[in-house]
């Protein structure tokens, strides 16, 4: 029982991270129709920015995370306008562009920081122990911050007119434009929100897990799994699927051993997709 609760808290904490990554990924796909292969890169970038600010420049950790989030959002905004915008209707082109940007970004990081893992650690150590329950404080903090960020995104997307416009754009782009919703401001804003969320997650999570130039690849893969499971383009789907994935991994690694987590996860995903090929919250194939 005690192990069950501890693993559950860790699973929720991982689910919250996956949710932040996947919400951004699915937001970009739903609104721009772009599969952002650079998404993991913004996670890595968030990590390196937070590391540089806090460990090299001596900025307090909390401020470093806030600044890293803002910077990744701003960089995402510029990337959308400069690289993606012009080719947004061409799916193959945007895949190649985002993949190319990812390669350039990672190569630049290797050039500046080297390929070795950074010694980036969470400033708060120790664990909450009570009644045999054992949860690292870092996991709790990640869970609370990611949870707050999820709530903020949810509010933005479902409670503001800006969010209405974003979802209208995802539903039917041409009609949205005809109703006064300007793609020229909505697209880069959506991209900035999404990359900012990836940057925040990277800044928050890499000190707990690992920071090296290639941690973004696993993150992108996880985002794919979550988004396909939840239904491409669906934000509620991404949230739910992220927690399913996080909890499955946590419980599988506790009860079946670490290496079985991925196996159980992929079997689960396969089974769900056999029953619902469009994902949990997905609608049938989108019109072209």
């Amino acid at each position: 029982m005690v192990t069950f609760v501890s693993a559950g808290v860790i699973g929720l904490s991982m689910g919250a991270q996956y949710a932040l990554i996947a919400i951004g990924f699915t937001l970009i796909f739903g609104i721009l129709g772009v599969v952002n292969f650079a998404h993991g890169g913004f996670y890595v970038l968030g990590g390196y920015l937070a590391f540089t600010l806090s460990h090299v420049l001596g900025v307090p950790f909390v401020a470093a995370i806030v600044l890293a989030t803002i910077a990744t959002a701003a960089i995402g905004y510029v990337v959308e306008i400069v690289l993606v915008e012009k080719y947004v209707v061409d799916h193959l082109a945007t895949m190649l562009i985002t993949l190319g940007f990812y390669q350039i970004l990672i190569t630049a990081i290797v050039v500046f920081y080297g390929a070795e893992p950074m010694d980036f650690s969470f400033p708060i150590t120790g664990s909450l122990r009570s009644g045999g329950i054992f949860v690292p404080y870092s996991n709790l903090i990640v869970f609370v911050v990611c949870g707050a960020a999820i709530a903020a995104v949810y509010w933005l997307v479902y409670r503001t007119r800006y969010g209405i416009a974003l979802r209208a754009m995802a539903d039917d782009g041409p009609v949205a434009r005809s109703q006064g919703i300007p793609p020229a401001t909505m697209f880069p804003m959506a991209f900035a929100i999404a990359t900012g969320l990836a940057g925040l997650t990277g800044a928050l999570v890499t000190p707990m897990l690992a920071l090296d130039p290639h941690v973004g690849e696993g993150v992108l893969l996880k985002a794919f799994v979550v988004v396909i499971l939840g239904g491409m383009g669906s934000i509620p789907g991404a949230m739910l699927a992220a927690f399913i994935v996080g909890l499955t991994e946590a419980y599988a690694s506790v009860y079946l051993g670490g290496s079985k987590g991925a196996l159980v996860l992929f079997v689960l995903v396969l089974v769900i997709l056999l029953v619902r090929p469009q994902g949990i919250f997905g609608t049938e194939a989108r019109k072209a």
């Binding site: 209405i164 416009a165 995802a170 539903d171 109703q179 006064g180 300007p182």
Partner: peptide
């Protein structure tokens, strides 16, 4: 807009 509510549909054009 199929996934939006009736109210959201009506408000969707009022961003300006």
């Amino acid at each position: 807009f199929r996934s939006l509510t009736v109210r959201e549909n009506v408000l969707s054009s009022t961003l300006g």
